[in-house]
Amino acid sequence: MRLLPIAAVSLTLLACTGAEPGNSQQAAAPGLPFTVTPVADFDSPWSMTFLPDGRMLVTEKAGVLLLVTADGKSSTPVSGIPVVDSAGQGALKDVVLDPHFVHNKRVWFSYSEAATNGKGVVLARGIFTDGKSPSLAGVETVFRATPYVTGNGHYSGRIAFAPDGKHVFFTNGERQKFDPAQDPKATLGKVLRLTIDGKPAGDPGLTAKGFHPAIWSYGHRNLLGLAFDKAGNLWEQEMGPKGGDEVNLILPGRNYGYPIVSDGDHYDGRDIPDHKTRPEFEAPKVSWNPVISPGGLIVYSGKAFPQWAGDLLIGGLSSQALVRVDVNGTSAKKGDQWPMGARIREVEEGPDGAIWLLEDGGQGSQGRLLKLTPNR
């Protein structure tokens, strides 16, 4: 972790001038509805979550979990993380507190691993032990994607707990293999549902048809965002191929069409039929072409930006943006797209309603932790 002085700066100006954070000449950029404060800097961070006392857990791509103070001024590695295969898109990925964390201190996380039969994404959990040497004790594997395959792409690995606190949803990417997204026996290219004890609890209709018993929905590509809204609707975003990034409302038993349909095309130029040509597949609520390369996703519920309550906030990687999707019940449409001057991997809501971002730390990004607050 590389520490930064805390100062409100403009990312747009920072990108243009190359100025360092803390430079007193920086000012809020015109046109942005928030002030951006760099808080810390990490090595290719991937995800974050807040502890009840305001401290943060931050994952880094190489396999490091950090306990970060609320002001971002110091961090401590948390031991207990298994060996992570971080080649390509592999990483220590999502980190989420158990719905009953206050009582059981359980932390859930995902990571990519290499095995003799290939590579895949793992859902795991451990008991958080605080102190001078914080750790995750008793780490256990909850679920492994199936099958493991060759390659280093499209692991996905996002985690979301159902409002009832009894189920956990977990995303498996199709690993750039296309067909597994439609394979009923494979968990690749799927949204999965498990009980809080890790037992498969997929859509009963699909299970009755012979699908893997954890599958909730299928026909997905690279699912990098997953979140419930206050009404209990499950929203998901995924990277499309060459074009066709998507926001989906996830419904049990539905087929979202990939790779049979997409609003994008194959990277080699071959056409993929659009969603509108095959109405039997569930169409996205919002799609982008050109792409935004969506990273993390939240449903915003804080008081700092009440005008966005219930909307989706998405980190943009290739678009180097924070993207807002306007949600109205189960409908959605494009909202704002604010330039951030760096690849945004993660979005999180702080205890006070501030919006926190993690830069990707790759391909020219720095890897900073940023706090967004309303302009005064």
Rank of each mutant, 00 (worst) to 15 (best):
D197W: 00
A62V: 09
S75Q: 15
G316T: 12
V347D: 07
A354K: 01
A115M: 10
E246P: 07
Q363E: 14
T207I: 11
L3H: 15
N117F: 09
R324D: 00
V247P: 01
E282V: 04
K185A: 13
A124V: 05
R345E: 12
S47C: 12
A354R: 06
R2A: 14
A87I: 11
F109V: 05
T35H: 03
P204A: 13
D41W: 09
P241E: 00
G80I: 05
W108D: 00
N289I: 05
K166F: 03
R2H: 15
T129I: 08
P339W: 12
G80D: 05
H154R: 09
S287H: 08
R193M: 09
G362Y: 09
A28K: 08
P200R: 04
A162L: 04
F211E: 06
W216M: 04
H220I: 03
R106A: 08
L67G: 08
P290Y: 08
P200L: 07
G80P: 11
A137D: 13
P99C: 02
Q307T: 06
G232D: 07
I272T: 00
D179C: 03
V327F: 00
L249C: 05
L3E: 15
I272L: 00
N255V: 11
L92N: 04
P33L: 12
G353I: 01
A114M: 09
P213S: 12
V247R: 01
D197S: 13
T146H: 08
F42V: 13
K166A: 10
Y300H: 09
D336A: 15
M1W: 12
F305Y: 05
V323D: 08
P241M: 01
T129L: 07
V95W: 02
V102R: 14
V78N: 02
G329A: 05
F169Y: 10
N375G: 11
T277C: 03
G120V: 04
K199R: 12
Q25I: 12
G257R: 03
G225Y: 02
L136G: 05
R254N: 08
A40R: 14
Y300W: 12
P82Q: 07
G157P: 04
T116P: 09
F178T: 02
T35Q: 13
A40C: 14
F281W: 06
G315D: 07
L372M: 15
Q176R: 14
A91R: 09
V168C: 01
I215D: 00
V168K: 01
G232C: 07
P241L: 05
S44I: 13
I292D: 06
I196D: 01
H103A: 14
I355V: 14
L313A: 03
L67H: 13
